[in-house]
Design a protein around this nucleic acid. Sequence first.
DNA 1: CTATAATATAGAAAATCATCAATATGAGGT
DNA 2: ACCTCATATTGATGATTTTCTATATTATAG
Lengths: 103, 103
Amino acid sequence: MELTNKQITVIFKALCDENRVQIFRLLQGGERCACELLDEMQLSQPTLSHHMKILCDSGLVVGRKEGKWMHYSISVEGADVAIKCISELTAVTETEGKCCCGE
Amino acid sequence: MELTNKQITVIFKALCDENRVQIFRLLQGGERCACELLDEMQLSQPTLSHHMKILCDSGLVVGRKEGKWMHYSISVEGADVAIKCISELTAVTETEGKCCCGE
DNA sequence: CTATAATATAGAAAATCATCAATATGAGGT
DNA sequence: ACCTCATATTGATGATTTTCTATATTATAG
């Protein structure tokens, strides 16, 4: 692990846009090629390509090139990293109150 | 569960900014008041306040008012929701290839 | 009730992001 | 070699986000 703050933002940026969340829902049914995703989304081809790049950069999605076609699918490994990351970030190591301000 | 795409983006927006990720790291040590966070972050007071609002809106952080002071801490329940959400979104229900494009 | 201290809100500037049209790249097919 | 199809990149534009200064709100102390 030991991700930098910057790397963490790149992972979760995948889930910060409604269209990208919708793409996850489509990929839940298994691998999809870009043309299929384009059919089901209300986006231009360049915009979809842009979102797929952000998703692949996050590690949550992987692309596989086959001839002219790009096939995208959810990365189980990427999902594990993201879940581990959020688990670690939200794990409280100390619950004792020791605040500066008058308790 | 049954969160909308929009609601999901609100949750993960919490982790899409380096300063907010850093705030999580500070809150890992337990509840902190805004003035403490302000001391440790390189931000103006209004900017910190803005980030804390986004964090509370995400459900991953909760605020507790005590007199003049605001105390912030990580929400275990919020973290559970986020983890469940990302788990569900990345769960592939079908792995059979059935792509339109010439396999 | 006034003064002070902690936090929030309003408003504006700068940076980032989502989007599209146009174009480039790359891979087959003829 | 040329044409076509799928996807990526470029460049521009509008929307959103981050950040600040200035001001408002709220709570406590005197």
